[in-house]
Simulated assay, not measured.
Amino acid sequence: MTQTITSLEGFVRKIRAVTPADDEVLVYRGHSDRRKFKLIPFVLREQKFKDAEETILRELLASHPAEFAADSTTLEQLARVQHYSLPTRLLDITWNPLVSLYFAAKNDKNITGEVVVFRIKKHHVKFFDSDTVSCIANLAHLKVAEKDAINFSLAGDDFNLQPPIDRLLQFIRVEKPHFRAGIDPAHLKTVLCVKPKKNNPRLLAQSGAFLIFGLTGSLDASPVPEIAIERIQINGRKKLDIVNELDRMGINDSTMFPEIEKAALYIRQAL
């Protein structure tokens, strides 16, 4: 997909030509600058974030416990702090290609954007209560030295009896008390598509989902066999026209960010 899109009509025509196989689903992500943004979650982009991952979540939980009172799993907590732009191992995606186009076109005018199309095997799409998702999400509670100490050459009981994995199991059992010590090493090194609970207005408005990253790198540098990637370039000089077309379709700052302050700003700027 090398053609550069210059209009909403052209984008819809291009998207309609992307047909998933019977065992695939399609999800999308928009980048306003195709050269700047990589397929890697915030917490894995810089060493200082990797080093602090174990404390980032606890710091916000400690200072604002009421915000997390309804969250029963680490995934739900990560999804909530993602909403506040705190570094996590989640990468935002959407089921709606027009939402991805909005994010590709709304900023960095005159810079080529892109919509990333993910073809994901259906068995690689998990719900919020998946055991595998719980294993990956709870990596956020391990110290960086513990994650680095995991020996992936081991298997079976030998793998699960390692001190870092034993500690990971303790966190998993907080949300899944009957979880057995049977973590598959491959599950901790993959990337999954997660269907979260739509328990905040932004997730609902953006038809949101997540890619959750295990102990892996960027999808650009470390592909996952179950996830194929295609890219649609968005002409930077036509971004404003595309944003205006999307606005007429009801996709704008106010609808994508339904918090009252965003709605107020949109109304003011529209005057």
Rank of each mutant, 00 (worst) to 15 (best):
residue 2 T to K: 15
residue 4 T to S: 09
residue 5 I to F: 00
residue 8 L to N: 04
residue 8 L to F: 14
residue 9 E to F: 14
residue 9 E to M: 15
residue 9 E to V: 08
residue 10 G to P: 05
residue 13 R to P: 00
residue 14 K to F: 05
residue 14 K to Y: 08
residue 15 I to R: 07
residue 18 V to C: 07
residue 20 P to I: 06
residue 20 P to E: 11
residue 22 D to T: 13
residue 22 D to Y: 09
residue 23 D to W: 11
residue 30 G to V: 04
residue 30 G to L: 07
residue 32 S to H: 12
residue 34 R to C: 03
residue 35 R to V: 01
residue 38 K to C: 00
residue 39 L to P: 00
residue 40 I to T: 12
residue 42 F to T: 14
residue 43 V to E: 10
residue 44 L to Y: 12
residue 44 L to P: 00
residue 47 Q to R: 13
residue 49 F to S: 14
residue 50 K to L: 09
residue 52 A to E: 14
residue 53 E to M: 04
residue 56 I to K: 06
residue 59 E to R: 05
residue 61 L to C: 09
residue 62 A to W: 07
residue 69 A to N: 03
residue 70 A to L: 03
residue 72 S to M: 04
residue 73 T to P: 00
residue 75 L to V: 11
residue 76 E to I: 02
residue 79 A to M: 05
residue 81 V to K: 15
residue 84 Y to S: 13
residue 84 Y to K: 14
residue 87 P to Q: 02
residue 88 T to W: 00
residue 92 D to P: 06
residue 93 I to N: 12
residue 93 I to K: 12
residue 96 N to D: 08
residue 97 P to W: 11
residue 99 V to S: 15
residue 102 Y to E: 04
residue 107 N to Y: 15
residue 113 G to S: 05
residue 117 V to D: 08
residue 121 K to P: 05
residue 123 H to I: 03
residue 124 H to T: 03
residue 132 T to E: 14
residue 134 S to W: 01
residue 134 S to K: 07
residue 136 I to K: 13
residue 137 A to H: 10
residue 139 L to Q: 03
residue 141 H to E: 08
residue 142 L to F: 01
residue 145 A to G: 11
residue 146 E to G: 01
residue 147 K to D: 01
residue 157 D to C: 03
residue 160 N to Y: 14
residue 164 P to Q: 13
residue 167 R to S: 02
residue 169 L to A: 11
residue 170 Q to R: 09
residue 172 I to Y: 05
residue 176 K to H: 12
residue 181 A to H: 15
residue 183 I to T: 15
residue 184 D to V: 04
residue 187 H to D: 13
residue 187 H to C: 07
residue 190 T to G: 11
residue 191 V to F: 01
residue 192 L to F: 10
residue 192 L to M: 02
residue 193 C to R: 13
residue 193 C to H: 15
residue 196 P to C: 09
residue 201 P to Q: 04
residue 205 A to E: 06
residue 207 S to W: 06
residue 207 S to D: 01
residue 209 A to H: 15
residue 209 A to K: 14
residue 210 F to A: 03
residue 214 G to F: 07
residue 216 T to D: 02
residue 218 S to I: 05
residue 219 L to D: 10
residue 222 S to P: 02
residue 222 S to E: 13
residue 223 P to D: 05
residue 224 V to D: 08
residue 228 A to D: 13
residue 230 E to N: 14
residue 231 R to V: 10
residue 233 Q to L: 00
residue 234 I to E: 02
residue 239 K to R: 08
residue 241 D to S: 03
residue 244 N to Q: 08
residue 245 E to W: 09
residue 252 N to R: 12
residue 254 S to D: 10
residue 255 T to F: 01
residue 257 F to Q: 09
residue 258 P to G: 02
residue 259 E to C: 02
residue 259 E to I: 06
residue 260 I to Q: 12
residue 265 L to R: 13
residue 267 I to T: 05
residue 267 I to V: 09
residue 267 I to G: 01
residue 268 R to L: 03
residue 269 Q to N: 14
residue 270 A to I: 06
